[in-house]
Every structure is written in C-alpha cells, then in structure tokens.
C-alpha cells in the first residue's frame, strides 16, 4: 500500500513557513516570554506604541524605505523594460554581450562590487544621499525587470503598434493606448519585484547610505542587535506589510490567465 505523503509534507511546509512568523507576531505583543513556556507570560501594545511614534526610527524608516523603493521600482521598470524590449524585439551588434552585461548583477555577488561602488560614489558625492542609494539599488533590481520584460515583449506582437500607427495614432499615443495596456502584467510584476528587492536591501544601503540614510532594514537590524525583542517583532511585522499590500494588487498578474510569469499555475 502506498502511503500518501502529500498532506504531511504540506503541513511540514506550512510549519516551516509560518512558525517563525507566528513567533515574531507573538513576540511583538509580549511583555515577557521565558524559555520553556509555550506562550508569552503577558501581552501589551507597548512595542506598537513605540513603533508608531512619528519621529521614531520605525516610522522614519518606513518613510525612507517607501520613498526609495518607489523611486527604484519606477526607474528600474522604465530602464529594464526598455532593455527587455530591445533584447526581445530587435537584433543589434553585440547583443549577446549586452544581454550578459544586463544580467551580470544576478550572477556576480553584490558584496564583491559594493566596495567599488562605494569608492566611486564617494568621488561623485553620492554617498549618504537618497539619490546614491537609489542608484545603488538599481543594480540588483534592473536585471529582474529585464528578465521579466524580455519575456513579456517576446510574446508581444509588434503588428499591434503598426495597426495603431496606420490608424493615425502618433508613437506616443500608440505607446499609451496600445503597447502599455498590453504589457501591463509584465510592468506590474516588474515593479513588484523591483520594489520588494529595494525594500529588503541591506548591504548596499548600509555602505552607500553610510548610516545616514536609514531604511527599515537598517532600523530592524539595529533592533535585532539590541535586546528589545518585542520592538524587533513589531518592526518585523511593519516590514512585511507594504510588500504584501503590493502583492495583493499585482497577484493577478503573477499567477493565472493574464500572468506574465509562467510556471506558477493558478493559486
């Protein structure tokens, strides 16, 4: 007789994903939680009150992170979709080399080049600035956008644009009314990826931001090294929310029929 392992494996998988999350969530409300106890000894909203302080590190971190991730999301999507379109729809000299260069940041460990970036950015006065951090964040984000948009444009029929043109629409009108609506799934997923990667980036922000651009991961890391576990828990929960909100609005493009990615099926 075959033993059906599906259900047990599924349960293990969920435990693996959610136990750490549950413990963080519990910690964020805990007043104390000693080792052998299954649950905290008491609950309070103290950590969230501290977290909600408008001049506190967490609120400031959320603001800084949001500004940077939004800029990076938009700029990476713009650059990456142009490159993706070029790769998918045109042939040009040194195309292979261009493709390799665009995707190289995915392969080369970012820590290996961060030193070089830092030296360069110091020379141009870009360290300790939002602009510098945004530029640095483009390095790990653009390749993902290029990958997604190359796939999207490979499935896009350029004849639709020509049809738009022969109907008297200018290139800009065609872009706005024909092309963008047709590749919006790819653009949405690209923006989601770029936003989330930028949102979670730590090392580049630390080195280029020089500690004065305090994004949420930096704040969180400082808490982790301290001993206030409820506050760390609260910061972690706050850290998770924006990407989840974004996922809520882009998930229809991530899976299912109008998906820009393949292989995820329909959940």
């Amino acid at each position: 007789m075959r033993i059906n392992l599906r259900i047990p494996i599924l349960i293990l998988f969920f435990l693996y994903l959610f136990v750490p999350f549950v413990s963080i969530a519990l910690w964020s409300f805990a007043t104390g939680w000693r080792f052998p106890d299954l649950l905290p000894s008491g609950y309070s909203l103290r950590a969230y009150e501290i977290a909600a302080d408008p001049s506190g590190d967490i609120v400031q971190g959320v603001i800084t992170s949001t500004v940077i991730a939004l800029i990076v999301g938009v700029v990476a999507t713009l650059i990456g979709s142009s490159a993706g379109r070029a790769i998918a729809m045109h042939s040009f000299r040194l195309k292979r080399a261009f493709q390799f260069l665009v995707l190289a940041p995915l392969i080369v460990p970012s820590l290996a080049v961060t030193m070089g970036i830092q030296i360069l950015f110091i020379r141009y006065g870009l360290v300790d600035t939002i602009l510098g951090v945004c530029l640095a964040h483009l390095i790990p984000t653009v390749p993902y956008v290029v990958m997604i948009m190359t796939g999207t444009f490979a499935n896009f029929d350029r004849s639709y644009e020509e049809q738009g043109q022969v109907l008297g629409a200018s290139r800009f009108t065609v872009l706005r009314k024909v092309t963008i609506p047709m590749v919006i799934p790819g653009l949405s997923v690209s923006f989601l990826f770029a936003f989330v990667i930028s949102w979670s980036e730590y090392i580049l922000t630390l080195l280029v931001g020089g500690g004065s651009i305090k994004t949420l991961p930096l704040v969180l890391f400082a808490f982790l090294r301290g001993s206030d576990l409820p506050l760390t828990g609260a910061a972690s929960i706050v850290f998770m929310i924006p990407p989840l909100i974004l996922l809520r609005f882009t998930s229809k493009y991530l899976v299912g029929r109008s998906s820009s990615m393949t292989g995820l099926g329909s959940v």
Partner: peptide, 27 residues
C-alpha cells in the same frame, strides 16, 4: 505613417484586446 490617409487591414485582425469592439472602431 500616421499622417498618411490610409486604411490598412493585416492578415490578423489585430483588435486591441484592452478595448471593446466599439472602442476599437473608434480608435
């Protein structure tokens, strides 16, 4: 192209999928 007074129909109908039939014709 966009300034030439032409109508052109291709092998594929190429109706814009994000518009209704009416909006397509009114394009």
């Amino acid at each position: 192209v966009e300034r030439r007074s032409i109508g052109m129909v291709f092998q594929k109908a190429l109706l814009f999928p994000n518009m209704t039939i009416g909006e397509n014709i009114a394009f």
